[in-house]
Structures are given as structure tokens and as C-alpha cells.
Amino acid sequence: MKIMTPANWITLFRIFSVPLILVFLDQYEKSDEINQPDERLRAGSFIIFLVAAFSDCLDGYLARNCGQKSKLGAILDPIADKLLLFVLLFSLATINVSKIAKIPLWLPFLIASRDILLLFGILFFKAIHKEVEIQPHWTGKVATFGSFCLIGFSLLGTVFLSNISVYLCALFVIASTLVYFFRGLKYLIYQESRSISSTPKKGNFV
């Protein structure tokens, strides 16, 4: 099996698109500071982001339907997604440009907190020697889609749509956090009940 499949190259493009978008946004902010905003830079950052967002669907399709699943892809894909979303959300929360709809700073921290809690949950199960596979839930998928939409609306400067997306995104991030928490709790209770039922009772001989 090839390590670097076309799907993996697309994922790498998504990772390297992040610093490129940041450079465009930085230069756009500097041009705005001298009252000569270069809208080509904002358009360029939006186009690169749009291609990067589309690449997320493309590499997933290739991996699932064209036999291009790999261990490297399984590692790179979530890293690329988190990097693209969190870095751009944080950047758009701290940028000072009039034609970009600013994102509240609490949102990227809310998303990061959800991911950190999930990571701690996985580490906890590993620490107690219980393997657990996280199955994506539709609330998490909606939150990710909402984050992509939010970044796009922010870059386009559509304040109304950006504000709606902020609260919808936050709602589904919280919902997905609760879903994963109760899933983990249910799994832990189930495993504990199994271990208790499999323990021989005192006085029983087989």
C-alpha cells in the first residue's frame, strides 16, 4: 500500500494552505491600516479557503471510494481539519479590518475546549486499558460544517450571516460535547457492569 496516496497529497495541501491564507490576511490588514485595503488579498484568502474546504470533501471521497485509506491519512486528515478551522477562526477573531466580519474570540476557545475534553477522554480510557473508538455524531458534523460556513461569511464581510453562524456553531459544538460525554459515560458503565458480572461469586466453583 502506498504511503502517499492522492488523498494524502490533498490533505497536505489543506495543511499548507493555512499559512498561505494567514499571509494574505496579514498583508490585507496592513493595507487596511494605511487606508488602502487591497481587496485582491481578501479575495485571494477566500478563494484559497474555499479550495481548502472543498479538498476536505475530495480527500474523504477518494479515501472511502477509491481504496486510498491509509494510516497516514487517518492521522493527517483530522490534523488538517482542526488546523484549518481553529487557526482561521482565531485569526478572524483577532483581525482588525472593517470589511471582515469579526468572530467573537470565545468561539475558537469553545471549540478547542471540546477537542481537549475529547482528547482527555481518549487518554482516560487508554489509561484504564479500555479501547474505545469514537464514532462521529451528526451534531459534530454540523458544527464542523457551520465553522466552515462561518469562516466564509466572515471573509466575505456578511455580518448578519456571520452572527447567525456563530451561535448555531456554538450550539452544535456544545451539543456534540454532551453527546460524546454521555456516550463515554454509558460505555464506562457498560464495561464496569460486564466486569462485575464476569467476576465469580464467593462460594462458586466451576
Rank of each mutant, 00 (worst) to 15 (best):
K126I: 13
E192M: 14
I196K: 09
E133L: 10
I122R: 05
V142K: 08
F160M: 05
S198A: 12
T139F: 11
L185Y: 09
V132A: 07
V179F: 13
I116L: 14
L118M: 14
Q191V: 09
L188C: 01
H137K: 13
V142T: 15
F160E: 10
G184P: 10
D115G: 03
S193A: 11
T177E: 06
W138T: 12
G146K: 02
G157A: 00
K126E: 09
N163S: 08
L185T: 13
I128S: 05
A112D: 09
E131G: 10
L107N: 03
L185W: 11
F160C: 03
S154N: 10
I174A: 14
L156Q: 08
A127F: 12
G146Y: 02
I111D: 03
E131A: 09
L107R: 03
S165N: 07
Q191L: 15
C149Y: 10
S162A: 15
A112H: 01
W106Q: 09
S198K: 11
A170V: 01
I122M: 14
E131F: 06
K186G: 03
I111V: 15
F181V: 11
I111M: 10
K186D: 08
A170L: 02
L178S: 07
L119A: 15
A170P: 01
A127Q: 05
I134F: 08
I151W: 01
G146W: 05
P108V: 00
T199A: 14
I189E: 06
W138R: 13
S176V: 02
V173E: 06
F120V: 14
R114Q: 07
L105Y: 03
W106S: 06
T158R: 07
E133D: 10
F148M: 11
N163T: 11
F182N: 02
G121K: 02
F145K: 04
L168W: 13
V132P: 00
I116A: 14
F172H: 07
K102M: 04
I103Q: 04
V166W: 00
F109E: 02
T158S: 15
I116N: 05
R114L: 04
W106F: 14
L117W: 04
Y180F: 14
F148V: 14
I174G: 02
F153R: 02
S113M: 09
G121Y: 09
Q135S: 15
I116G: 13
T199C: 06
Y187I: 13
S147Y: 00
A143N: 07
I103R: 02
P200N: 02
T177K: 03
S154I: 07
P136K: 06
C169R: 02
D115Y: 13
T177C: 09
H137M: 09
Q191N: 15
L155N: 03
L150I: 03
F160P: 01
L171M: 15
A112E: 07
Y190C: 00
K130E: 14
S198Y: 01
E131K: 13
S113G: 06
L155T: 06
S193R: 11
L118K: 04
V179E: 10
K141E: 06
P200L: 12
K186N: 15
F148E: 01
G146Q: 07
G157L: 05
S197H: 05
L150D: 01
D115F: 08
G152P: 02
H129F: 12
F181W: 09
I128D: 06
E131Q: 09
F124W: 12
V159A: 13
Q191F: 05
F145Y: 12
I111H: 06
I196L: 02
